[in-house]
Simulated scan of single mutants.
Amino acid sequence: MTSRLFPFVLALLLTMAATPSAIAATEADYKAAYAAAEAAAKEAAALRHQWTTTVSTLSAAKKAADGGDFDRATAAAKEAEALAKASIYQAVSEKEAWKAMEIR
């Protein structure tokens, strides 16, 4: 019976070892996440397609970091990067999508 459980226990242990633990974000984590978000936001702005939610989320990240809450600041910066990348995707896809529209 125990030989049947071994693969499952082994898989569980390997999964637990590979999963990052809930470690508090550091200022360096925040700065890296903010830099990535800021770069994506600048790219979206260059495409003239920057979402206002990206700007406000970047502002919230900076405010949280100024208050010393690097967990929340890092999370907000990552969210801002995702928003910026989504706006870039939208800008690029809409640039070509109009060609497929049928004029009636």
Rank of each mutant, 00 (worst) to 15 (best):
A80I: 02
R104Q: 07
A76Y: 04
M101C: 01
A84C: 07
A41V: 06
T74P: 04
A100C: 00
S21C: 08
A40V: 08
G67F: 03
R4P: 01
L14G: 03
Y34I: 06
R4F: 09
A11S: 14
S3Q: 13
T74H: 01
F6Y: 11
E79I: 02
A32I: 13
E94Y: 10
L83V: 01
A77F: 02
A36F: 06
G67P: 03
V92F: 01
W51G: 10
A91P: 03
L83Q: 13
A84R: 02
W51C: 10
A100S: 13
D69L: 08
L83N: 11
S3Y: 09
V55T: 15
Q50E: 12
A40D: 13
L12C: 12
A40F: 02
Q50Y: 01
E79L: 11
L5M: 10
V92T: 11
A61C: 08
A36C: 06
A45P: 01
I88H: 02
T52D: 15
F70Q: 04
P20Q: 08
E102C: 00
A75V: 11
A18M: 15
A37S: 14
F8D: 08
S87M: 09
F70V: 07
Q50D: 05
Y34S: 12
V92D: 07
P7E: 06
A76N: 15
A65G: 06
A64N: 09
A45R: 14
Y89P: 00
R48W: 00
A64P: 00
A18T: 11
M16H: 06
S93M: 12
Q50A: 14
Y30G: 07
K99P: 03
S3H: 09
T26P: 11
R48G: 07
T19E: 02
A24N: 12
A46E: 15
E38R: 10
S59L: 10
R72Q: 13
A17C: 10
A60T: 13
A22D: 14
L5R: 08
T57I: 08
E79W: 01
T15W: 11
A28H: 08
A40G: 05
W98E: 11
Q90L: 08
A75L: 12
A86N: 11
A91N: 05
M1P: 11
V9S: 07
G68A: 09
A37Q: 08
